[in-house]
Simulated scan of single mutants.
Amino acid sequence: MVEIKNPGQIAKMREAGLVVAAVHAATAEAAVPGATTRDLDEVARKVLAEHGAKSNFLGYGGFPATICTSVNDVVVHGIPDDKTVLKDGDIISVDAGAVVDGWHGDAAYTAFVGTGHSPELVELSRVTEESMWAGIAAMKNGNRLIDVSRAIETYIRRQPKPGGGKYGIIEDYGGHGIGSAMHMDPHLLNYVSRKRGKGPKLVPGFCLAIEPMVSLGTPLTEVMSDEWTVVTLDHTWSSHWEHSIALTEEGPLVLTAVDCGRAKLAELGVTAAPDPLAS
Rank of each mutant, 00 (worst) to 15 (best):
L208N: 10
D41A: 09
T256A: 10
G97A: 12
D39A: 10
L48T: 05
E211M: 14
G8N: 07
S118W: 08
A137Y: 04
K201A: 15
E42V: 11
A134S: 10
K201S: 14
E222R: 15
G199H: 04
T154V: 06
D185P: 15
G175R: 01
K161G: 05
V230A: 01
M182P: 07
M213F: 13
E15D: 05
A53Y: 01
D81V: 13
H235W: 09
T115K: 10
V19W: 02
P252K: 01
M224E: 15
D234A: 08
S244K: 03
D259T: 01
K5N: 04
V32D: 08
A263E: 13
D275I: 06
G62W: 03
T221E: 03
A11C: 04
T256N: 05
S215A: 01
D234P: 10
P212E: 08
R150I: 12
G269L: 06
V85K: 11
K46L: 12
N141G: 07
V2D: 13
V2M: 11
E15Q: 03
A108F: 02
V203Q: 10
T37W: 05
G217K: 07
A263D: 15
V223K: 13
D259K: 03
E29A: 15
T110M: 11
T236H: 08
S93W: 08
H243N: 15
H77S: 07
Y60G: 13
I136D: 02
T36L: 02
D95C: 15
S215I: 00
L86G: 13
